[in-house]
């Protein structure tokens, strides 16, 4: 009898739980993949759960490849987007996406930069020295792994299409690390690397500060960005932004039976509410480098 009562009570509690979660509206957040869909989900599922708990919305995390992002966002597949700042510009220009908050990570906080490096002892010490050399870039839609360096070269009178021996982009995941190692192991003479990746690799002891010459570094511009589709309720957008900005290091979420630190799980230090005008530096870079969303043929 006691057992029966226990089972009945348990079933009721389960039903009540299901009822509670199904009452909430369901929305999707598209997360741009950095290395793989698995890694993206592992990083951002706890944050997504935290946002669901705080905003009483059933958010679902969707991993999205960089090159597919604009198209899938335009197709209305997700209400919110977490992308790099260049993809945010594309979403903002083409779909009038609303800026929410910018991720903080590394030395420059909510900003980041792109650096051009060569191996110490290679004799390549200045940016002018890269003419006629083999250069490796990050993926094309990476603002701090491609665009920033491309623009930096142009502003220093070097046309990457004409003045260097050849350039390449690595395939597969961990492209930014591959770029660094390509120079470290003499596969290429010069690399275009995000300042953040160089910082993280140095902190992890994978490389040392003395391994490379920094030939140049771009001005800083905003880092990865949360945005919302233009038709999402303005009140929810405001609350979503506030939850992100209020997130601090000790904040936790219960996820799959574990209590996790939200920011640490997502490899983030915090969020900052920037203005869209803070992205103007990046806009100018994209225009000079003839990159989307300002590309002209």
């Amino acid at each position: 009898m006691y057992l029966l009562r226990l089972i009945l009570l348990g079933s009721l509690a389960l039903l009540a739980g299901c009822q509670g979660s199904s009452d909430r509206p369901v929305m999707k957040i598209g997360y741009m993949n950095c290395n793989s869909a698995e890694e993206t989900m592992e990083r951002f599922q706890p944050l997504t759960k935290y946002l669901s708990d705080k905003l009483n919305v059933e958010f679902q995390a969707v991993p999205v490849d960089t090159q597919d992002f604009a198209e899938r966002f335009a197709g209305g597949e997700f209400e919110f987007a977490h992308t790099n700042s260049l993809v945010y510009l594309i979403l903002h220009e083409e779909q009038q996406a609303t800026l929410l908050a910018t991720e903080k990570r590394g030395n420059y906080g909510s900003h980041t930069a792109g650096a051009i490096i060569s191996k110490k002892g290679s004799g390549i010490k200045k940016i002018e020295d890269i003419k006629g050399k083999r250069v490796i870039f990050g993926p094309q839609l990476a603002p701090s792994g491609y665009l920033a360096q491309y623009d930096l070269m142009l502003r220093n009178g070097i046309d990457p299409e004409l003045d260097i021996a050849y350039y390449a982009i690595p395939t597969g995941s961990f492209k930014h690390e591959k770029v660094v190692y390509s120079v470290y192991f003499d596969q290429f003479d010069v690399a275009a690397v995000p300042a953040l990746d160089l910082e993280l690799m140095t902190r992890a002891g994978k490389v040392t500060a003395d391994d490379f010459n920094i030939l140049g570094q771009s001005p800083t511009f905003p880092y990865c960005t949360f945005s919302a589709r233009k038709d999402v309720d303005a009140d929810l957008v405001k609350k979503f932004r506030q939850v992100l900005v209020d997130l601090t290091e000790p904040d936790t979420v219960d996820y799959q039976g574990e209590t996790l630190k939200v920011l640490a799980s997502a490899w983030i230090n915090g969020f900052e509410a920037l203005a869209d005008s803070d992205y103007d530096q990046l806009r100018e870079m994209a225009k000079r480098a003839n990159m989307p969303p300002y590309q002209e043929f």
């Binding site: 650096a115 910082e199 140095t202 002891g205 040392t208 500060a209 003395d210 920094i214």
Partner: peptide
Amino acid sequence: GKYEAALLKLDELSR
């Protein structure tokens, strides 16, 4: 004036 390299050196020392 090599600020970026100086920051990297600090990252290394912070280990």
